[in-house]
């Protein structure tokens, strides 16, 4: 049986680099598109309110 330990470790490193590059790329792009503002955090406030009858209607957004 041939041993692929080293190739597989290098492959894993390569994969992590790929992942990191992808993560940085998408991070920068999302900053450029203005995603990194307060708006994108809206979901976490809204989920607290879905039992709140008074503000229920107001929080609905159009499709």
């Amino acid at each position: 049986m041939r041993d692929y330990s080293y190739p597989s470790v290098y492959f894993a490193y390569f994969y992590f680099v790929l992942l990191l590059v992808g993560a940085i790329f998408f991070f920068l792009r999302s900053v450029r598109h203005g995603y990194w503002g307060k708006d994108s955090e809206e979901a976490k406030y809204r989920m607290l309110k879905d039992d709140d009858e008074d503000s229920y209607e107001d929080l609905r957004r159009p499709l």
Binding site: F26, F27, R29, S30, H33, Y35, S40, A43
Partner: peptide, 8 residues
Amino acid sequence: MLRKADYS
């Protein structure tokens, strides 16, 4: 992309 995964 991040936004899309978030909304779509």
